[in-house]
């Protein structure tokens, strides 16, 4: 679902626009649409999610129609079309991870954070969700946190608690 919620007008900053230009330069002339995924990642890293307004501005920048951006943003699972918690904890829920306890970790996540998959905690800090195989099955269970996609391996309930507490502290000191 596209969201117009909190649809602030975003004006991309000059440093961000410079990054866009760097990306576009990787492709042949007239093939600037290839820059779409990398640019959406940059925008999401900056704003936390992709609002319709942000996507429209990307379309204008790349000289493509807005629908072409929505099409892509809705296809790929990494793009958030709604605001999320400041930290989105993404736990792998695929077969190999489940052999060594991923389901238990997801249940624990729900209990610890007190929100269902996809929801945001009241303080706005956390969301969590199950994602598909993260190519780290040998270090399972695993979770990742964007936008840098930091990895946490061989998870236990205690490690999850510790991580959540650390992130809470980090958010307070900022």
């Amino acid at each position: 679902m596209l969201s117009v919620k909190e649809n602030k007008i975003v004006d991309f900053s000059t440093p961000l626009l410079e990054k866009f230009a760097e990306v576009v330069a990787r492709y042949p002339k007239g093939r600037q649409k290839s820059a779409l995924l990398p640019i959406l990642h940059l925008v999401q890293a900056e704003y936390g999610w992709l609002s319709v307004d942000a996507m429209d501005k990307v379309a204008a920048y790349l000289d493509i129609r807005p629908i072409e951006v929505y099409e892509v943003a809705t296809f790929y699972t990494m793009f958030f079309l709604q605001p999320k918690g400041k930290y989105v904890l993404e736990v792998c829920r695929t077969g190999p991870c489940c052999l060594v306890g991923a389901e238990r970790i997801m249940q624990h996540m729900e209990d610890k954070l007190g929100v269902k998959e996809g929801e945001v905690t009241a303080d706005g800090l956390f969301s969590w969700r199950g994602v598909e195989c993260l190519a780290a099955c040998g270090y399972a269970p695993v979770l990742q946190i964007g936008p840098e996609y930091t990895f946490y391996e061989n998870l236990t309930e205690e490690k999850v608690d510790q991580l959540i507490d650390e992130l809470k502290q980090k958010a307070q000191t900022k």
């Binding site: 990787r26 290839s34 990642h41 790929y76 699972t77 195989c133």
Partner: peptide, 8 residues
């Protein structure tokens, strides 16, 4: 390098 978007 080109990043994907999360799709097997």
């Amino acid at each position: 390098v080109q990043p994907g978007g999360g799709a097997y």
